Amino acid sequence: MNPGDEQTYADTGHTRTRLPDSDPYGGAPRRTPPRSSPRSLVTVVGVAVLLIAAIAFANRGDGSSSDRSSAKNDKPTTAPTAASGTRPVDTKSSGVPTGFTQTQQGAQSAASNYAVALGSTDMFNKDSRNALLHLLYTPEAATRLGGPMNQAYSADFLAKMGLDTAGNPPKGSTFVSRVVPVGTTVLQYTDNDAKVAVWYLGLIGMAGTASTDPVTSSWKTWTFDLRWSDGDWKIVSDTQRDGPAPVPGDDKAATSDEISKAIEEYGGFTYAR
Rank of each mutant, 00 (worst) to 15 (best):
D23F: 01
G13H: 02
M1E: 05
L135P: 01
V47R: 13
V236E: 11
L50S: 14
T86L: 05
G147P: 00
T209H: 07
D127M: 04
T165N: 12
A152E: 12
T121F: 02
P38T: 14
Q151M: 08
P97G: 13
D62G: 10
I263H: 12
I204R: 05
G119S: 06
D257G: 12
A83W: 01
P139Y: 02
R273H: 14
P34A: 03
D62Q: 11
S260R: 08
S40P: 03
Q108Y: 04
P29Y: 08
S218I: 00
A115Y: 04
P20N: 13
A253K: 07
S66E: 12
A272V: 08
A79V: 11
P33R: 06
K171W: 09
T255D: 05
S128A: 14
D5F: 07
A71F: 10
K75F: 06
S128Y: 03
D156Y: 14
G61E: 06
F224G: 02
G85R: 02
P88L: 08
D74C: 08
A110F: 15
P20I: 09
N2R: 09
S84P: 05
P33G: 03
V215H: 00
S65Q: 12
S154D: 06
W233D: 01
G26Y: 03
Q7A: 14
F175P: 03
A194V: 03
G119I: 07
S154L: 04
D156R: 15
R144P: 01
M1F: 06
A152M: 05
W228C: 06
S22D: 13
G208D: 08
A253I: 04
L201W: 00
S218D: 09
Q188D: 15
